[in-house]
């Protein structure tokens, strides 16, 4: 129930997946919104502080999720074609990679001047690399491009799941909603 099996996902993996879905869409929307706010908007600073704090929490969830994935069996792909299953596997790894770099690049923008990232006043993440001048610019470019790339990949990911559900009529989508399928 909690852990994955060879054929289906456990509750933990399912919850972690959907938490990431919420976080990714929420952060994308918040990101688009906050960069349009002007200096005199009341949430000008608050939106960015919130985005950064949630980003740190998402990074923690990401680490837990990736760790859990390593500790659990990976349910086999449900396509009858080996190539499709292999493609799906690499697509999933690609999603992990893009999310990881997205998280790191965001952190590198905010910490380029040595300032820590405060997480809702609970704790803060100190800066590590502080190549001021170029770091926030490069990390900023990467962050923006990857955010859009991730959205495109998420769209393909969701369409593939729907395709399995509607056309192939297999459990690909259902097993990400119900544990132990």
């Amino acid at each position: 129930m909690m852990k994955n099996t060879q054929t289906g996902y456990g509750l933990v993996a399912i919850l972690l997946h959907w938490i990431m879905v919420l976080a990714i869409f929420g952060m994308f929307g918040l990101g688009l919104y906050m960069v349009e706010l002007t200096y005199y908007d009341s949430w000008y600073h608050g939106s960015l502080e919130t985005h950064k704090a949630i980003g740190v929490l998402v990074a923690l969830v990401f680490v837990v999720r990736f760790g859990w994935r390593q500790l659990n069996p990976s349910p086999a792909g449900l396509s009858t074609k080996k190539l499709e299953n292999t493609a799906a596997h690499f697509a999933h790894l690609g999603l992990y990679l893009v999310i990881a770099v997205l998280l790191v690049s965001g952190y590198l923008i905010s910490t380029a001047d040595g300032r820590a990232v405060d997480v809702f006043g609970l704790f803060s993440v100190p800066a590590t690399l502080t190549e001021r001048g170029s770091q926030e610019e490069i990390a900023g470019e990467v962050h923006e491009i990857l955010a859009w790339l991730l959205m495109a990949m998420v769209a393909v990911h969701a369409l593939a799941a729907l395709k399995h559900h509607v056309i192939n009529k297999d459990n690909t989508l259902k097993r990400m909603l119900k544990p132990g399928l």
Binding site: I109, S110, T111, D113, R132, G133, Q135, E136, E137, G140
Partner: peptide, 10 residues
């Protein structure tokens, strides 16, 4: 430009 704040400088 350097105002001692990376996000602002960006």
């Amino acid at each position: 430009i350097d105002s001692n704040h990376a996000e602002r400088d960006k």
